[in-house]
């Protein structure tokens, strides 16, 4: 005579009909007399029965379910990262617009060594164009490029770039035309090249300096470029960066060429100012990039006239 405990542990195998015939007979005899064990057996049989009923899930199927292809996850994360980079570019543009709207005060802080001329220019610019801020309701032009992703941002701005406000406190303007590709945003969206309109400069016949900036997280970078016979002299101001942070300054041309213009190490908690040179003519430069640790990139687009 089997005890309930002995029978219980055999019930699973019995539900699959896997017991040896002699033991199966003993178990059946017990089940005929024991209501509790019979109820337990019914429950287990329902489970094994379901396995048979849904059918056609093989051993190898189960193996695939256990280990789905990780390559898919990697690819998905890359897509996500690419979208994030696009969002950041738009944010940087929007942030630049805000800075410009701030006029002379903002430029006085940001423009570093050549601040005076830039301040003048900015004030003049601000005076002549009182509303450079791009409003949030920019044209929702259907960008063919990745319209699905951008469309989501357009439809739900609170989940789009705006949601990154926590890390991008300087962004107070709605990101302009989130559904536009970066190129369009740049054209309509005002990273203006401020050229000094000071008469003094034109008398000097020096090529006007070009000032532009970009924001990534809490870090703001401004590049002031002065054209030279070959290439340009660059003054880079980085603010908000961690002490000891290292950036590599790249100059990117319209045809995709990329030139490393220098390496910057932030050695001061205050605004750090660096000088660098590039052999690339300013007219062909589309943007500067400051590449920090990891995948941190501060893009500083240039708008040529």
């Amino acid at each position: 005579m089997m005890t309930c405990e002995e029978v219980r542990l055999s019930l699973g195998a019995h539900a699959f009909g896997a017991l040896e015939p002699d033991e199966a007979v003993l178990v059946e005899a017990h089940l005929a007399e024991c209501v509790a064990c019979a109820a337990e057996f019914d429950e287990l049989s329902a489970v094994s029965g379901l396995l048979g009923r849904v059918g056609h899930v093989s051993e190898s199927d189960v193996a695939q379910v256990v280990s789905p292809p990780v390559v898919v996850l990697d690819r998905l994360l890359k897509v996500s990262a690419a979208r994030r980079r696009r969002s950041r570019l738009l944010l940087a543009l929007a942030a630049s617009v805000v800075l410009l709207a701030g006029g002379g005060a903002a430029w006085g802080v940001l423009s570093g060594s050549g601040g005076e001329d830039a301040s003048i220019a900015a004030e003049q610019y601000a005076a002549s164009s009182p509303a450079p801020v791009v409003s949030g309701d920019g044209p929702a032009s259907g960008a063919a490029e990745d319209s699905a992703v951008l469309g989501k941002e357009s439809a739900k701005p609170e989940t789009g770039p705006g949601a990154e406000g926590a890390e991008e406190p300087s962004v107070t303007a709605q990101v302009p035309a989130a559904s536009s590709p970066p190129q369009t945003a740049r054209d309509g969206g005002d990273v203006r090249v401020l050229e000094s309109a000071s008469p003094r400069e034109s008398v000097m016949k020096a090529a006007p300096d070009v000032v532009m900036s970009g924001v990534e997280g809490k870090v703001t970078a401004t590049v002031r470029a002065a054209a030279r016979a070959t290439g340009a002299d660059l003054t880079v101001t980085v603010s908000g960066a961690d002490l000891g942070a290292v950036y590599r300054l790249d100059v990117v041309g319209a045809d995709g060429t990329r030139e490393k213009a220098g390496t910057l190490e932030v050695a001061s908690a205050a605004d750090a100012v660096f000088r660098a040179t590039t052999t690339m003519p300013l007219t062909t430069v589309v943007r500067f990039e400051l590449q920090g640790d990891g995948d941190v990139v501060i893009r500083i687009p240039v708008k040529s006239r």
Partner: peptide, 15 residues
């Protein structure tokens, strides 16, 4: 005995 007990607990866990 181990096969039996594992089968039992496997079915309970599967449920």
């Amino acid at each position: 005995g181990t096969v039996k007990s594992r089968t039992y607990y496997a079915l309970r866990a599967l449920k």
